[in-house]
Design a protein around this nucleic acid. Structure first.
Length: 137
DNA sequence: GCCAACGTTGGC
DNA sequence: GCCAACGTTGGC
């Protein structure tokens, strides 16, 4: 069981879009590290859904519901993707400023590699953010 | 809208 | 295989 964080710009694909759709494939990733992270995902893994640019906050939780398979929108067929199912919104969004200010979260890949759109989250970080967001599964 | 960070591309 | 040029991401 591993934990992740996926980013999306809400005007392109928002948490509400994902909730409305239920299950959606995460296409469009064109970065090897992000793609490799998806390759490492297993069915049942959980991820935070983060809004970049607008909001800059963790707004929901999704679950990995497929294995890694080729991204059909990639003309060069180099990158892949997985499917995510919307699980539930967080009760209190956790924003970037909070994460930056919190010493417990200073090692998050979200901060270390700001441009990485799919990154790992440690279990301790996951649990801590769940507490901050007042969310239980 | 700007621009820093940083990943990718392509010429050599 | 190096590295300069280029493109993209994403915070501010």
């Amino acid at each position: 069981m591993q934990y992740w964080l996926i980013k999306s710009e809400p005007y392109k694909w928002s948490w509400n879009d994902h909730v409305a759709k239920g299950v959606e494939h995460w296409d469009g990733v064109r970065n090897y590290q992000a793609s490799n992270n998806m390759k490492a995902m297993e069915i049942g893994d959980l991820a935070f859904f983060y809004h970049s640019n607008e909001g800059k906050e963790i707004v929901g939780i999704v679950e990995v519901v497929s294995g890694y398979y080729p991204d059909h929108t990639d003309p060069k067929e180099r990158f892949g993707m997985v499917d995510f199912k919307a699980v539930k919104p967080v009760n209190k969004p956790v924003n970037l400023a909070q994460i930056k200010a919190d010493p417990n979260l200073s090692e998050m890949s979200l901060l270390k590699q700001m441009r990485l759109s799919v990154g790992p989250v440690r279990k301790s970080e996951w649990d801590y953010i769940m507490k901050l967001s007042e969310t239980t599964l």
